[in-house]
Amino acid sequence: MILRLVIADGSQSPAVAESVEVAEDGALTGWRSVSDGGVGWFAGRLPAAELAEIQALIGAAGAAPPPARPRPEAAEEVLELTATGPVRIAGLTDGPGDWPRLAAASRRLLDRLTDFPRAAVGVSRTPGGGARLEHRGTDPVRVDLGTVAVTATAWRGYYEPAGDWAGEVTGPGEVEAGPEWTYDLPIGFEPAGPDVTVHLTADFVILSGPTRIPVRAKYTPDA
């Protein structure tokens, strides 16, 4: 491991509890709990150029930065490097300097992670306007769909609110989702108009052995 970033925020539900880790050979692994790109486990390999960029940033950063207090409402962000051990970086905002650049690059790795789903579930919009959970990756994942909280938010033009809906769908309970698996969630919301965009969220539970982890899959096509 040359870099590990963990972001956690228990003030919202489901909690944000996400991680990304880069190995010396570029292997990229991690977990997403609240994400546009699916929730669950992710694993892949960074192209050589991206790995070299990360390595260069790590090398430039060197010793741990001076403590920087985070802004109000900031989540906890802990970056762990071989040279420094765990360092809190929530106070490092984007900007010039080796550490801010490394912090920003590390945060981007969490988004990059979703390009490599291994055992994940995402949500999308069906042609009929409903929500659809779909497996992503190669490995199965156990999910509890006993109760799925769904929200739909419609936008017109440039993010002008055009209505919203929230409801709960009673699903089949615990199921194993593998490749090609989907599950449709009806929503009672049919926004009309050629320039309307609908965003969706679906809250459910992923099972990891005996551990139940509440997650939120998001569909934000313009994100």
Partner: peptide, 20 residues
């Protein structure tokens, strides 16, 4: 203020364009 795509928990310097 950074305006980020999609949704998320805002903080004083980071807001989300589609925050419902």
């Amino acid at each position: 203020v950074q305006v980020k795509p999609g949704t998320g928990r805002a903080n004083a310097g980071e807001w989300f364009v589609a925050d419902p």
